[in-house]
Write a protein that binds this DNA or RNA. Structure first.
Length: 121
DNA sequence: ATTCTCACA
DNA sequence: TGTGAGTA
């Protein structure tokens, strides 16, 4: 990983900045984090801090949502992407369990109607 | 002035 | 998802 990428992964932007850069509401931005789609850091005062990479991902999520996908579909996409990145590490296995566990928990109550799993990446 | 969590007439 | 309340 180069220095440039390192800078892009530095969490230094407050949610206010993210709002201006993405035209999304604080509610939506925080929600993506709650769903494990982005992982902003936290300051000692519990303030969320986003990186430029987070901005890219948030913008991407926004597009996917506009294209009709739901949080679950997007989760699957990033889940598969990470499987490809780390071919078979122990960390992946652990994270895989977390993703699935989280998936099942949320699947228990809400939306059972949206069952179009088309976007296989 | 900003952001955070929580909850819903 | 919006929004208002009550904080930090």
């Amino acid at each position: 990983m180069g220095e440039k990428d390192l800078r892009k992964s530095m969490s230094v932007l407050t949610i206010g900045t993210v709002i201006r850069l993405t035209s999304l509401t604080a509610r939506q931005i925080r929600y993506y984090g709650d769903q494990g789609l982005v992982f902003p850091e936290r300051t000692e005062s519990n303030q969320r801090l986003y990186s430029l990479n987070d901005i890219d991902r948030i913008l991407e999520i926004k597009d996917y949502l506009d294209e009709g996908m739901n949080i679950h579909d997007i989760k699957r996409i990033y889940y598969k992407q990470q499987l490809r990145k780390s071919k078979k590490g122990e960390l992946t296995d652990v994270e895989a369990r977390n993703y699935l566990k989280d998936d099942f928990l949320n699947a228990g109550r809400l939306n059972k109607s949206n069952d179009f799993r088309s976007n296989r990446l």
